[in-house]
């Protein structure tokens, strides 16, 4: 359960997050949609403590975030743009994470296998292609079997085959009872995964509810159309 109360973040004059009130349901897939620059990534980064909010509170599992970092061990995070210790190999990064968290995980071989990273295992990260980096990025999010998965634009840069592997993986985790948060600005792509939809526009929550209720409300036939109509409503 993740709860945000009056969350506010400004970048200069820009209100990236404007008094956000949200509760993200456990054991569902929540899809945060919104146009470019609507605050999706800022919202996610605030939950992770990467961005420090100017005001408001965040609760993860009913515990208020106040500088303690242990809650992050419950979260698997896949950032939009992968950033890695460039000089390490794929295998070394997995080892480093296990070492730093002092946690055992035997999921790494399985993840390397399912994302087809066997050939790249011993290559340095700076020598990998963008798509391969994104796969490593995804594998890291799943590495410690976390209760909460936060995936920022997970399918961007992936080829269709890897993209569907990732989607299957997300469905599999959902079946195990994980809380999953996704963002994307390509609406059609993740429609099959979304259960709850949150629409952010200019740092404000414009819609928060199930996919079915969204489609009912707007009387459109799919997510893309529904969100497009909400966006034009918001603009008007």
């Amino acid at each position: 359960m993740i709860k945000l109360a009056k969350l506010q973040k400004n970048f200069g004059h820009l209100k990236a997050l404007n008094e956000i009130e949200l509760a993200i349901k456990p054991e569902t897939i929540t899809y945060i949609a919104g146009p470019n620059g609507s605050g999706k990534t800022t919202l996610i980064k605030a939950i992770l403590g990467l961005v420090k909010p100017d005001a408001g509170e965040i609760f993860v599992d009913n515990i208020k975030l106040n500088g303690d970092c242990n809650y992050r061990s419950k979260i698997g995070y896949m950032p939009q743009a992968p950033s890695f210790p460039e000089n390490l190999t794929v295998k070394e990064v997995f080892e480093m994470l296990k070492d730093i968290r002092a946690k055992h995980s035997d999921l790494d071989d399985q993840l390397v296998h399912s994302f087809g990273l066997e050939k790249e295992k011993n290559k340095r990260l700076k020598n990998l292609s963008g798509g391969t980096k994104q796969k490593v990025n995804a594998a890291i999010a799943f590495l410690f079997n976390p209760q909460i998965l936060i995936l920022d634009e997970p399918t961007s840069g992936l080829d269709p085959a890897s993209s569907s592997i990732l989607k299957d993986k997300i469905k599999e985790e959902r079946a195990k009872g994980k809380t999953i948060i996704l963002t994307s600005h390509i609406l059609s792509e993740l429609e099959e995964l979304a259960e709850n939809v949150i629409l952010l526009i200019e740092g404000k929550v414009c819609f928060n509810g199930s996919l079915i209720s969204l489609i009912d409300k707007t009387e459109k036939k799919n997510l893309e159309r529904a969100i497009a109509s909400l966006m034009s409503e918001a603009a008007a």
Binding site: G67, N70, Y71, Y77, S83, F84, I100
Partner: peptide, 16 residues
């Protein structure tokens, strides 16, 4: 040069 590295590690359960 370590910017990526720092960003990467700051998402882990580590104190700043």
């Amino acid at each position: 040069n370590n910017k990526n590295n720092i960003t990467f590690l700051s998402a882990q359960p580590l104190k700043r």
